[in-house]
Simulated assay, not measured.
Amino acid sequence: MRVLFIADPLQSFKIYKDTTFAMMQEAARRGHALSVAQARDLALEGGRIMVDATNLTLTGEQDPWYRLGDCYRQPLAGFNAVVMRKDPPFDLEYLYASQLFSLAEQQGSRVFTSGQALRDFNEKLAILQFPDLIAPTMVTCDIGRLHAFVNQHFDAIVKPLDGMGGDSIFRLRPDDANLNVILETITQRGARTVMIQRYIPEIRNGDKRVLVIDGKPVDYCLARIPKAGETRGNLAAGGRGEARELTARDREIAETVGPVLKRRGILLAGLDVIGDYLTEINVTSPTCFREIMDQTGLNVAGLYIDALERELAHH
């Protein structure tokens, strides 16, 4: 099987914790041929979606961990599977790539996650499809409405709709001296739509990343525990990751969302769960495989490649 990974530059990988690397390792171990490209290497030429792809060999060493072979332009449909692992933000370039994927899928490409699903499942807004699973939430660019929400709930989290890794997430209270300037800044004075949610105090026990592969929850989640004085559990914001078995509620959330993801062609998603509430559905480039694998011995990358092989066998 020929697998193309579309990812950020390889030199930026931290392989001791990189989920894409864990996927590559597992695919290579099974004898699949690996290639790599960036989203910018996609092009439409002569009516076909082409890609400048480079053959990739894993060395099994720490440094250098990869060896690059020849790079040549070829139809995207020439690969058995295209695995989209470019990190957010989901900006216009990401959107254009997803539209090229949709064209490529009409030409026979198998893209994971599909272009359509990438567009449909905004990582913040997707939770609104599951109103029974979420904390009180509002989406608006209206500063007055955001003020009213903070006054109603006394403690709130506001975030942009296109961030990642905890960027630009603010905790707000009615008596915060900076409340006005935070709301003006994050909404760009009412020009940008944001999400505001009631603050969930259980964040101190961890912002849990629950992985869903092929519609089913992985048995362990990664609780990302904020460092002292911090409201964000994101590992990128200095949080500590601790693998845990799913609680009954974690499983209930994942089993509610999972079939919808599967129906929409989303092979892998990372649900963010705080306390009893679903807070995000990450589909662009979910992480935390390696931490769960290292702490529990569960081969999460194996579960993912199993699912990929099953999908390809069906078609």
Rank of each mutant, 00 (worst) to 15 (best):
V210A: 14
C141A: 07
A81C: 10
E184M: 08
F289M: 10
A77L: 03
L42T: 07
A148S: 15
T247R: 13
I305P: 04
G258Y: 00
V210G: 14
M293C: 02
D18V: 05
T57L: 14
Y66H: 02
F13P: 05
Y96N: 07
G275L: 07
D306N: 05
E252T: 04
D294S: 02
Q25E: 14
V181T: 05
G78V: 12
F21R: 06
R48E: 11
L312N: 03
R85D: 10
A148L: 11
G47A: 00
S35T: 12
G144D: 13
A39D: 13
V150R: 09
L235W: 01
R209M: 14
K208L: 05
R224H: 09
L92I: 15
A53E: 08
P226I: 13
M164D: 13
L76E: 07
K262V: 10
L308W: 03
I49D: 04
S285V: 13
L68T: 00
L76I: 08
R198C: 11
M24Q: 03
N234H: 02
D155W: 04
M293Q: 02
L68I: 00
A313R: 00
I253T: 06
P201F: 12
T185E: 10
D70S: 09
A177N: 15
E202C: 06
S102L: 04
G239M: 00
I127Q: 12
V111Y: 03
V82R: 09
L34Y: 13
A254R: 04
R171T: 15
L42K: 08
F130K: 13
A236R: 00
I213Y: 03
T185P: 05
L261C: 11
A248I: 13
Q129K: 14
R48P: 13
Y72W: 11
K14W: 00
P201H: 04
I127W: 12
L10S: 05
P160R: 09
F101I: 03
H153N: 12
C71F: 00
L44N: 08
V139W: 15
V82W: 06
I266N: 02
L267S: 01
L10F: 06
F112Y: 06
S109P: 09
E309F: 04
Q197N: 09
L56R: 11
E309T: 08
E291F: 05
H314L: 05
D87P: 06
A126C: 05
Q11F: 01
L146C: 10
N180A: 10
D294A: 02
